[in-house]
């Protein structure tokens, strides 16, 4: 089952889980910005239009986000 990510508006989000007991909720995850949410959370978390704009992510800008810690170079192989 696919869904729209509330944080980055990607259409690639998918259902990751359903409640272990009584099917009370579903959990979704976004493979673009790695946001996860539960269907039973308030609209301010689940609805892309109501998600706090200060925390929205533009997928086009992900490559500019800092890498911490940096990936080091590999050591030379000893012969």
């Amino acid at each position: 089952m696919s869904a729209i990510c509330p944080r980055c508006d990607s259409a690639k989000a998918r259902r990751l889980a359903t409640a272990p007991v009584d099917g009370a909720w579903e959990i979704f995850g976004c493979p673009v910005c790695f946001f996860t949410w539960r269907s039973s959370e308030p609209d301010s978390i689940t609805d892309p239009k109501r998600y706090d704009p200060r925390f929205k992510i533009d997928p086009q800008r992900i490559d500019a986000i800092p890498i911490v810690p940096p990936v080091p170079g590999k050591r030379p192989q000893s012969s």
């Binding site: 995850g29 790695f34 996860t36 810690p69 080091p72 590999k74 050591r75």
Partner: peptide
């Protein structure tokens, strides 16, 4: 951070020991 059923995000602050362990592992490939 729980990213999937069997996948986690990790925050190794550079001053902490696990950041040193990870750097050595990555230097070794």
């Amino acid at each position: 951070q729980v990213k999937d059923k069997n996948r986690l995000g990790l925050q190794p602050v550079p001053m902490h020991d696990i950041a040193l362990h990870l750097r050595k592992a990555e230097e070794r490939g």
